[in-house]
């Protein structure tokens, strides 16, 4: 049974994702901040981390870098709703969801999802990253 960690500063978003994945039979934990996510990562060693990009304090991009440096084998799905918040706001393209996701891919995320995504898209992305 694959285990998944969801990191999003919006509890409702994390919970909805958890429900979808749990229904599909995955083992899911939810963290509401990057710090919380890092802690749980060390505890639970999930196969996949689904993380938001734009989060207060520690940014999703930073989180991805840290996760990969500690656990190089973890698979990462970046999700973003775009918007002008966060450290990338000064760039003209900052409000483009594409820009965040492209940055996330650069940081090492294998899959990218634009919020709001369909249940099927989420499940497809997860299954794509699983070994079998």
């Amino acid at each position: 049974m694959a285990s998944i960690l969801v990191v999003d500063d919006e509890p409702e978003v994390g919970e909805a994702i958890r429900r979808v994945l749990a229904r599909a039979g995955f083992l899911v934990a939810v963290a509401n901040s990057a710090e919380d996510g890092l802690r749980r990562m060390d505890e639970q060693r999930p196969d996949i981390v689904i993380t938001d990009v734009i989060m207060p304090k520690v940014h999703g991009l930073e989180l991805i870098t840290m996760l990969l440096s500690r656990h190089p084998r973890v698979r990462i799905i970046a999700i973003s709703g775009g918007g002008s918040f966060g450290p990338l706001a000064y760039k003209p393209d900052a409000i483009s969801t594409h820009a965040y996701l492209a940055a996330a891919r650069e940081a090492g995320a294998q899959e990218l999802l634009t919020k709001p995504f369909d249940m099927s898209d989420l499940l497809a992305a997860v299954r794509k990253l699983l070994p079998n």
């Binding site: 919970e15 909805a16 429900r19 918040f85 409000i95 995504f117 249940m119």
Partner: peptide
């Protein structure tokens, strides 16, 4: 940008729960 960010976050649970 700000409104879009909020909206996309709100729409995510709406879409997922209804599905």
């Amino acid at each position: 940008g700000g409104v879009a960010h909020e909206f996309n976050n709100i729409l995510t649970p709406i879409l997922l729960y209804s599905q």
